[in-house]
Write a protein that binds this DNA or RNA. Structure first.
Lengths: 228, 228, 228, 228
DNA sequence: TATGAATGAGCTTTCATTCAT
DNA sequence: TATGAATGAAAGCTCATTCAT
């Protein structure tokens, strides 16, 4: 044969899943991990938009094409990176027994701050991607919704117990206070607004307590903790 | 995720300034205005990243090349569009005399909501651009800073007058409450979170007042209004 | 702005038509014509599969990107080249008055041969593309169908006039005889089977006449000519 | 046209022959057979151009790399598949004694049809490959030549016996009638042109007989059968 | 000023083939 | 033999920007 002749591919598109994690040989798993780590580094350095697949591959020390052995495209690996990061937000927090309401709320806020801080620049990148990618936006909103729902339930319980201002709407209150914490932390940790961590978090917690007119020193025994 | 996403590294971009507004012939002024209007329409339709210079020119009914008679690039015209939009946030609000504190704060929150709503999709786009463009980020933060500083001064006055909780830090409180309002409005108006406007804004204002432990029915006569 | 940022395009796909021929400036028309000519040359030299857009642009003496000002992709320009070639097959042939049946049929066959020959290597390329491209296959079959239908009508008339074998099915006969001519010409002109043109075409015409048991010397006055 | 189409220029391809069939272990023979079967399935499903070596290996249930233990490349295995298919066309047909000429010719045409139909989609793929691969084109022409030569000899005999029109050239007639049958069957079976098999084949045979002006009911005892 | 054709850097993705295990 | 990870050559296509008219 004179000429070997290549493809007229029909749109491969969505399907064609990459080999699942548990079908990988140790070597493959290592490479995939290297790519994920490299991707995170590159995203953090360049942001999502400026990150190039080439850079990620190079950073991981593999050939350009190897990237496509494990991921479909930049979006795909980004989602994978986010997934590795996202989980910690969902772990239920173990709560000490004798906390006051202020302490419980403060604890939750601190924990949110620390988790956010641990994610470093990736949270900002996720925020960026969420402004133009529907899937990431959904993911972002799901995380948020869970927090808000938890807070909402707590507010209702406090209202029922006569501890919280009965005139505020629990849903909107939970949403607003969640936004307050979430956005403040974003300003401090992602946009780098200078701040004194202790004062900042203490103020946040006080405002939280005040906003619902909770008695700060009342025991928080009502089980579930009001995390953002 | 459907489409692939690209970006470009910073370009040298020699600063050849385009002809200033007052040096334009009437015809030129008309063309420039058409481009600005077209740009806003295209940005609102496609977002910043998907907007193409070609589309803007086409929408404005001028040739592709004409764009460059008036603007350096997409960034340039985007900044110009934002400038035409940004101003309204800064107009001092005329305040009625006999307002209560709740009314004053609620008025400010409503005004912020309305202004945001009037900007329509552009606020979301600006938020998007602010995630990767330093200049736009600065602009965004300047707007914010002005709001926060005004609130901060008001809080201090209220604390001095014995009306507000003296234990909260005025700066962080202003920042946090500003974030609360700003982010809530973003969720409602940009991300389209379903909400009942009246309840939502009322809750926001109540939380604001509560958070500082202000007496809601006290006259707001302390001059400057605490907007956002 | 630090980085100018490019697109996250949504699948542009089918639409986005290129500027129509009559909206082109003379310069544009010249370039487009150059690309078409270059494309034909490249296709004839390399076949469709091996032809590269780059080669076409280079051959036309324009930059790579210029190609995309006028055509969507290789398929698009191929279709355009074929369209410029296809038309001649459809021109109705002017027929002399006193022809015999054999002469009329022979004339049609010769004309088919010549038209085919004039298209040169492009007919082979079209045959190639028709094996994997549905649109081109349709085009190919449309051309064929028109020939066959014309022949079929002629055969019916001849049968009605008692000139042709009444036992053959007019449709299948037209199709089969069309295939005979079409494929023979393909073998000779595209695959380069050595042949003596005169004997070859004469044999073809004799077989045609015999196959229908037509009296070769009978006047062909039954108006429409049985082309392929 | 949906997808873009690429091709590759001829590769040097050093001729390291793969292990011959009789040097294979039983296990190896089984793997090779699996690959051949898989290749045929994939070619029939996707066509030659869209078939990927990966798909063939996967379909055969072996690792990608294993393919290269048995075949050089896609061309190589395609040729092998075709070889397994090609043979049946050459088997001499056993002919009954008292046939008429029409019956003999009809029988041959039916047999060609059936053989073609049995090859299913592979004949179309072979036609496709023959448009760009010289070796496959040769193979295709060899098959054809044998048929034509056989017909040519038959026609000569019939002419010598005064049974066939002496004015048609035996070589071109054989070629043209072969093309008629071959192409008709291609249209029906590969391109899927709707047809009534009995009428279609009967018409084909009648035209064959008529074209040579053979007496249809004359005994076909002249030994060798005019196939195709 | 306005035009729109021309440019080409830049990034993406595919898949045949090799090779260490 | 079998495996499947790694490779990298090839093309494709987009669109911001320039520039001759």
């Amino acid at each position: 044969m004179t000429a070997s002749t290549r493809a007229r591919r029909a749109a491969p598109s969505v399907d064609v899943p990459k080999r699942a994690d548990d079908e990988l040989t140790p070597r493959g798993a290592r490479t995939k991990a290297a790519l994920l780590a490299a991707a995170r580094a590159v995203f953090e350095r360049d942001g999502f938009l400026n990150a190039r697949v080439t850079d990620i591959a190079e950073q991981a020390g593999v050939a350009h094409g190897t990237f496509y052995t494990y991921f479909h495209d930049k979006d795909d690996i980004f989602a994978a990176v986010v997934r590795t990061i996202d989980d910690d937000f969902h772990e239920p927090a173990p709560r000490p027994a004798g906390e006051t309401l202020y302490e419980a709320i403060h604890h939750a806020n601190c924990r949110y701050y620390e988790t956010y801080a641990g994610r470093g620049r990736m949270m900002g990148i996720l925020e960026q991607v969420a402004t133009f990618d529907d899937d990431m936006r959904s993911l972002r909103r799901d995380v948020r919704r869970r927090f808000v729902e938890r807070s909402e339930r707590a507010i209702r319980r406090w209202q029922d117990a006569g501890l919280a201002d009965p005139t505020v709407d629990p849903h909107y209150a939970a949403s607003a206070l969640g936004s307050m914490v979430d956005r403040s932390v974003y300003l401090w940790l992602v946009l780098g607004e200078p701040h004194d961590k202790d004062i900042a978090l203490d103020t946040l917690s006080r405002l939280w307590v005040n906003a619902l007119q909770l008695p700060p020193d009342h025991p928080a025994r009502l089980t579930e903790s009001p995390r953002l």
